[in-house]
């Protein structure tokens, strides 16, 4: 069982990625907003547009797609699908994708995890 974590820098790909994952059989994922460290630090000091930077929600959010996948074959397929959908993660501008082994899972049954 693995957790797939994809930090997507350009949210215009979000819908496409989710649709592609659904198509190959990944049944669910959570989407979180996040801010990169450099983005956070650089946005804190305004020069010309302080008003926008003080407002909540004005930070440049990345999207984190979080999904738990039980089947290794499906996981490999999901990695390839994401890479293909965003036009190559390796160019460094489409975010970071990694997986983690999951030891315990309490919650939804196997049918929701792509088994």
């Amino acid at each position: 069982m693995w957790a797939l974590v994809y930090i997507l820098n350009e949210d215009r790909y979000l819908t496409e990625v989710l649709e592609a994952l659904l198509e190959i059989g990944v049944p669910g994922a959570s989407i979180l907003d996040s801010v990169g460290m450099l983005q956070f630090l650089s946005q804190e000091i305004p020069i010309f547009a302080g008003f926008r930077s003080i407002l909540k929600g004005s930070k440049p959010y990345n999207k984190i797609i979080l999904s738990v996948i039980r089947d290794q074959e499906l996981l490999q397929q999901a990695l390839a699908t994401i890479d293909l959908t965003v036009g190559g993660i390796e160019n460094g501008k489409r975010g970071i994708l990694f997986t983690l082994p999951v030891e315990h899972l309490i919650g939804p049954g196997p049918e929701t995890l792509g088994d």
């Binding site: 804190e44 000091i45 305004p46 020069i47 547009a49 302080g50 008003f51 930077s53 003080i54």
Partner: peptide, 28 residues
Amino acid sequence: GQTSMALWMQQASKQKRPLGIVLQFVAS
């Protein structure tokens, strides 16, 4: 200029944040 204001508020306590927001609002 809001840069020194933001730098000042960055090192100030969290309680001062509302005051900082008002200052930045007036400045903007």
